[in-house]
Every structure is written in C-alpha cells, then in structure tokens.
C-alpha cells in the first residue's frame, strides 16, 4: 500500500498542483476574461442551460398562471358585473330621460287642463288577436283606474279607452278598434261627426269618420278632436288628422279616413285620465 500511495499519490499531487498552478497563472493573466476550458464548458453547458431555463421559466409561468388564475377569474367576474351594472345604469338613464321628456310634456298638458287627474302606466303587452286592437297596461283598480277611463299620450292624444280592469292591470281598447264610437269635432269649422272603428281600416291602423254634419266641410289635413258630448270622453283631446275624404255623388261627405296622431304600435307609456270636469 505504501508503494501504491507513493507511486500514484505523489503523481496525483503533482498533477493537481500543476493544474491549480496553471489555472492560477491563467486567471491572473486573462484579467477577468473566460479561459479556454471555461469557454468549452460554457459552450457545452449553455444550450442545456437555456433549455433548462426555458423549461423552468415556463414552469414558473405555469405555476404563476395556475396560482393567479383564480384571482383573474374572480377579477374578470367582478369586472363583468361592473360592466353589466354600468350598462344597466346607462339603459336606466336613457329610460329615465325618455320618461322625463314625456312627463314634461304631460306637465304642459296638465297646466292646460287643470281638471284632469292623470295616472301614468306602461304598456305591458299587445293583444295577440287579429280581430280587435287592444293592449294591456301595468295599472289597474289598485291605482284607481276604472272601466271607461280615457287613455292618452303625453301630448294629450287619445289612444283608447279602458275596457277591463284588474287589480294591477287593465285592458285598453285602442281608438282604431271596431267598437270605437266617439263624438268628434273636425277642423277649424268644428264640424261634428262620429269617429267609428272599421275592421278594414283597423288592419292598417286608421279610423272612419262618419255622420259628418251636412252643413260642414272637411278637407284632408283637418285635425279631429273629441267633442266631449255625452261626457264619455274629455273635450278637446286630439285623435288624428283627416287623411282622405270620400264624398257621395251629390258632393256630400260620405265618410273620411282619419289617421291617428300617434303610432299606436310604438306606445310604451300612456297616461290614464282618471277624473275630469265634464263640459255641459
């Protein structure tokens, strides 16, 4: 053993010292630069290191992704909820602005007709039948509505009459319905007549003006308003304009077609006249 240690031990020590000596000299000579061995080992190591680094960083990203995913999902949900809230607010603001405009117009109407008591309501749905023209509104007897009450727009245009009242809903038969029968005055001359529903005209949202006073003369464009006769409707509510006049051979008015002042299909909010002063 002694012989072995002497033989190889001394050789090993010499080699180690040599290498250390060379390295020490080389380090002192290159002054911070990489040596040959370092370069070779670096050249071999670097690609592996790059791959390893890439894998590790990917793993880190993945870990971070997994770790943060829940937070991101929660944040996303929170933001979505915020967005939905904001969208709802915008919609509500738009609706409030529209309603505000309608109420301003109603205020003007109320100033003109101080005797009217209004109740605002929304149009809930239109009747699915092809054989009448009616819709359901969002107020009923709980709000003091009664059968026969007149229904108007914010501009004071008569759109119909309440025909059925529930506790929280009512059915409104529109002015173009077959059962309509309203005493009216037409044009500047205030020619009296009867506004009736006509099935054929109802299909295209028009009304028929009949029983026009013999002495009167009506022309296209004349405005038709309620006469208030009989007290069924308040006086002076606008109904529509005369769109065509049909005369008999003798020149007397047989009937006229009246176009409603308001597009009935587009109604969203209406006002029910609960009370008014009957003009004798």
């Amino acid at each position: 053993m002694k012989a072995y240690l002497k033989k190889y031990g001394i050789r090993l020590l010499i080699v180690v010292f040599l290498v250390v000596g060379i390295l020490a000299v080389g380090r002192s000579v290159r002054d911070g630069g990489a040596g040959l061995l370092s370069n070779v080992s670096g050249a071999i190591r670097t690609p592996f290191q790059k791959v390893a680094t890439a894998v590790v960083s990917r793993m880190e990203e993945l870990y971070g992704y997994v770790y943060k995913y829940d937070n991101l999902v929660q944040e996303n949900e929170r933001l979505r909820a915020q967005l939905a809230d904001l969208e709802n607010q915008i919609r509500a603001n738009d609706q409030a602005m529209e309603e505000n405009a309608r109420l301003r117009e109603l205020l003007n109407l109320q100033q003109k007709h101080t005797d009217y008591t209004f109740e605002s309501a929304k149009v809930v749905s239109w009747n699915a039948s092809n054989w009448d023209s009616s819709f359901t509104i969002s107020k009923g007897s709980d709000s003091g509505l009664e059968k026969g009450d007149s229904v108007v727009t914010e501009y004071g245009v008569l759109v119909g009459t309440i025909t059925e009242v529930g506790t929280s809903w009512s059915t409104v038969e529109t002015v173009v319905d077959l059962d309509t029968n309203i005493g009216v005055l037409v044009g500047n001359e205030q020619v009296s007549g009867i506004l009736e529903g006509d099935y054929t005209l109802m299909r295209s949202q028009y009304m028929k003006l009949s029983f026009v006073a013999e002495t009167g003369q009506i022309i296209t464009g004349d405005i038709v308003i309620t006469s208030g006769a009989g007290g069924a409707y308040p006086q002076g509510l606008i109904l529509g304009t005369v769109s065509s006049v049909h005369t008999e051979a003798a020149g007397q008015v047989e009937y006229a077609v009246v176009e409603p002042f308001t597009k009935l299909d587009e109604l969203t909010q209406i006002f029910v006249i609960k009370d008014y002063q009957v003009v004798e």
Partner: peptide, 24 residues
C-alpha cells in the same frame, strides 16, 4: 269563428275578414 263577430258588426268587411282568416 273569430271573424263572425266582426262580420255581424260590419258586414262590409267580409272580404278583409276572409283574407285575414286565411293568412292567420
């Protein structure tokens, strides 16, 4: 059957009623 009521109230609109009934 739905159109009968309209025809009774307004016999003149029979053709429109028939057309409506057919389309319905």
């Amino acid at each position: 059957c739905q159109m009968v009521r309209v025809i009774i109230v307004e016999p003149g609109s029979a053709l429109t009623c028939l057309l409506t009934a057919l389309v319905q």
